[in-house]
Amino acid sequence: MPPSGFLLVALLLVALNLRAPLTSLPPVVGQVSAALGLTPAQAGLLTSVPVLCFALLTPPASALVARLGPERAVLIAVAGVVAGQAVRSAGTVPAALAGTALLGAGITIGNVAVPVVIARDFLSRSAAVTGAYSATMNVGSALTTTLTVPLAAQWGWQWALAGWGVLAVVALVVWGRASRGVAPPATAAAPGPARAAHGGSARLGRPMALLTALLCVAFAGQASSYYAMTAWLPEILHARLGLGAGAAGSLAAPFQLCAVAGSLGVPLTLSRRVPVRWVSLAVTGMWLALPAGMLLAPAAALAWIALAGVAQGGNFTVIFTLIAQRAPSVAAARRASAVVQTLGYACAAAAPTVLGAMHATTGGWTMPLVGVLALLGIMGGAMAVATRPGR
Rank of each mutant, 00 (worst) to 15 (best):
P3H: 15
S4M: 07
A15V: 02
L16F: 13
L16M: 11
N17M: 04
N17P: 12
R19H: 05
L25M: 06
P27N: 01
V29R: 00
Q31H: 10
P40C: 00
A43E: 06
S48A: 15
P50S: 03
L57P: 01
A61M: 04
L68H: 14
L68G: 07
G80A: 11
V81A: 02
V87Q: 04
S89E: 00
A96I: 09
A98N: 06
V112Q: 01
V114M: 12
V114F: 01
P115Y: 07
A119M: 07
R120N: 01
L123A: 15
V129M: 11
T130A: 04
G131W: 12
N138A: 13
L143Y: 07
T148Q: 02
V149F: 01
W157H: 06
W164A: 08
V170L: 14
G176Y: 08
T187H: 04
T187F: 00
A190W: 08
G192A: 14
A194F: 05
S201C: 05
L214V: 03
F219C: 11
S224K: 07
Y226R: 07
M229S: 05
E235P: 00
E235T: 15
I236H: 10
G242E: 04
L243M: 12
G262Y: 05
R272P: 09
P275L: 08
V276F: 00
W287T: 13
A289G: 12
A292L: 15
A297G: 00
G314P: 10
V318T: 14
I323M: 14
P328E: 10
A331T: 03
V339W: 13
Q341F: 05
L343N: 01
A357W: 14
T366D: 13
T366Y: 05
G371Y: 06
L373G: 11
P389H: 03
